[in-house]
């Protein structure tokens, strides 16, 4: 420890810089606009009651409200009733900044819908990737057929092409098919994971042939072998690949940005955040950081719970 202190010093400084934006994000999501503006209140802010001006304005009593309320305030004239109602509204509309920020995050924009979209898109992408890649990987690893080398060569060649790079022609194709602004547009380009095929093939090479022959002796078809023998043995590799895929597509911003324009119902979380930012004025910084926190949290929590698996999954590409 004595000779290590300078290493810890360097690493702690680095860690502070790494954590700083996370700290800012979460801290802002708790603070009132005033505290953000003045840069005070520590991490949690003072959590003093604040009044939501928009909410008060919405409840600005009109003639009917006053008439309806007159029964509750006997012997008062209209002006007094208006004042009483306004102060009631103010009381109802005041809340702690943290509550305000998070409730705004969910009410200003359909954040839940965005999150649901994120889940739908990432899970469908992963499921389709497996359905396409697993049989191909099995055939490339374990079946002997004319053209196998050529197919594998093609896989290796396609590894060179990042999907983001061909986004423009893909976008044109989808536009021509009238598929922009659909779930399909969000999912389809990712259904083929060349990397997944490559990875699974490498994994299947290590599965003993005897296991497959035993399956054949038991009368399984090749399809049955893929799903009933290869899939279960590949669970650890698949799990790592799942993490790799889900993290990449939950965080992906570029592709949804291209194919989803305007239709909020299809927004994925990153798109929703951008929309929020586009329309945000100074008073919305808190809610914006609250929704950023909500979007970032699921993966971070999952990561903290299963660090080893996550690191394994994300760095999968390093195992080539």
């Amino acid at each position: 420890m004595t000779r290590e202190w300078w290493k810890h010093l360097v690493l702690i400084l680095g860690a502070l810089i790494v954590i700083a934006p996370f700290y800012t994000m979460v801290s802002y999501s708790f603070k009132s606009p005033g505290e953000i503006d003045r840069g005070e209140g520590g991490f949690f802010g003072r959590q003093e009651l604040m009044v939501d001006e928009k909410c008060v304005k919405l409840r600005d009593p009109n003639r009917d409200d006053i008439a309806a309320a007159s029964a509750r305030f006997p012997g008062m004239d209209d002006n007094a009733i208006r004042k009483a109602l306004a102060s009631e509204a103010e009381a109802d509309c005041s809340m702690r900044p943290a509550v305000y920020n998070y409730s705004q995050a969910f009410t200003q924009a359909p954040l839940l819908r965005y999150l649901a979209n994120g889940v739908i898109v990432t899970l469908s992408i992963f499921a389709l990737q497996v359905v396409v890649a697993l049989p191909a990987a099995y055939a490339l690893a374990k079946l002997r057929f004319w053209g196998r080398e050529a197919v594998f060569g093609l896989v290796l060649f396609c590894l060179l092409i990042p999907v983001h790079a061909v986004a423009l022609p893909l976008y044109i194709g989808l536009a021509k098919l009238g598929l922009t602004n659909t779930y399909a547009a969000l999912v389809v380009p990712w259904t083929i994971s060349v990397f997944g095929i490559f990875l699974m093939r490498q994994f299947f090479l290590t599965v003993p042939d005897d296991l497959i022959d035993a399956g054949r002796m038991d009368g399984m078809s090749e399809f049955a072998i893929v799903w009933r023998i290869m899939l279960p043995t590949a669970i650890p590799a698949l799990l790592a690949f799942a993490i790799f895929s889900v993290v990449a597509h939950w965080n992906d911003y570029f592709w949804p940005r291209i194919v989803v324009t305007g239709n909020r119902d299809l927004f994925t979380p990153p798109l929703g955040l951008r929309e929020f930012k586009g329309g945000a004025d100074g008073s919305m910084f808190g809610p914006m950081m609250a929704s950023a926190t909500v979007i970032v949290t699921p993966l971070i929590v999952a990561f903290l719970l299963a660090q080893r698996r996550f690191i394994e999954g994300i760095t999968l590409s390093g195992m080539k």
């Binding site: 996370f22 800012t24 994000m25 911003y253 930012k277 950023a292 970032v296 990561f303 996550f310």
Partner: peptide, 10 residues
């Protein structure tokens, strides 16, 4: 792990 666009805003 973090969503880059969110962290960019931060």
């Amino acid at each position: 792990m973090a969503t880059l666009i969110a962290m960019s805003i931060a």
